[in-house]
Design a binder for these strands. Structure first.
Length: 222
DNA sequence: GGCCAGGCGGCCC
DNA sequence: GGGCCGCATGGC
């Protein structure tokens, strides 16, 4: 099977197993952007607590953040961890984006601009574009790397942009598909393809180079 | 109690 | 341009 077939087959198998509707829950574009920063290397549960505090204070918006002192912001988002660095990043992102005119950019230019902002790297840029601005940019994360390298389609050391291109070259350029596919990857990583994988319940076990032999993954990933 | 979580920037070489 | 490090809370 070529990559095109495998990547689309994996989507079918995941979609059959899991129902993920409306996976990134947010009340506004700004909340998506804020959440994208807060969730960096962090459990979403902790992010929810931080967002709840911001909402309570009426500051869960880019304008709200521009008006808040960095030290105060750090206090409010404490539950999300790395709170000092994230406060700095939120300030930088809010300052750069609160008045953005999206019509001025094509997708590639917008991505470059996002990447130039302190605190926005590849994954955060794509998350903001896809889930915030509703533009077709596929999101790669640690879960994607784990699942697809275990299956054997990519290598753990592959570069972000290379893996992103692999997906964008091989699935339909459909925003809802991009969103749902990424959501399904995250769900499978949490349910089955964990650090200590539960291969017997994984819908992808028949395509995975490890099959159901999770002990062999365990020993290899050590 | 130890491991893990939806990365990133700043170093160093 | 690659590899390592600091950042930090809360859930399991």
């Amino acid at each position: 099977m070529g990559n095109h077939l495998i990547i689309n087959k994996i989507y079918e198998l995941l979609a059959k197993q899991y129902k993920n509707d409306n996976w990134w829950k947010a009340d506004s574009v700004d909340e998506v952007i804020i959440g994208a920063i807060l969730t960096q290397n962090t459990n979403w549960k902790n992010v929810e607590k931080a967002i709840a505090v911001l909402k309570e204070k009426g500051l869960c918006s880019l304008v709200g953040i521009t008006k808040t002192k960095e030290e105060d912001l750090a206090e409010y988002i404490k539950a999300s961890g790395f709170f000092k660095v994230k406060a700095k990043r939120l300030k930088a992102v809010a300052d750069s984006l609160y008045m953005i005119n999206l019509d001025k950019y094509d997708n590639d230019e917008l991505r470059e601009f996002l990447l130039s902002i302190h605190g926005i790297g590849n994954e955060t840029a794509d998350t903001i574009m896809l889930y915030g601005y509703n533009l077709p940019s596929f999101v790669i994360d640690a879960y994607t790397m784990r699942i697809y390298s275990r299956i054997g389609i990519i290598n753990k050391k592959d570069k972000y942009n290379q893996v992103r291109q692999l997906f964008m070259d091989n699935i339909n350029k459909d925003i809802e598909l991009y969103k749902k596919y990424h959501a399904l990857i995250v769900t499978n990583a949490k349910e089955a393809c964990k650090v200590k994988p539960l291969c017997t319940i994984c819908p992808l076990k028949d395509l995975c180079k490890y099959g159901s032999d999770y002990e062999s993954i365990d020993s290899k990933s050590k």
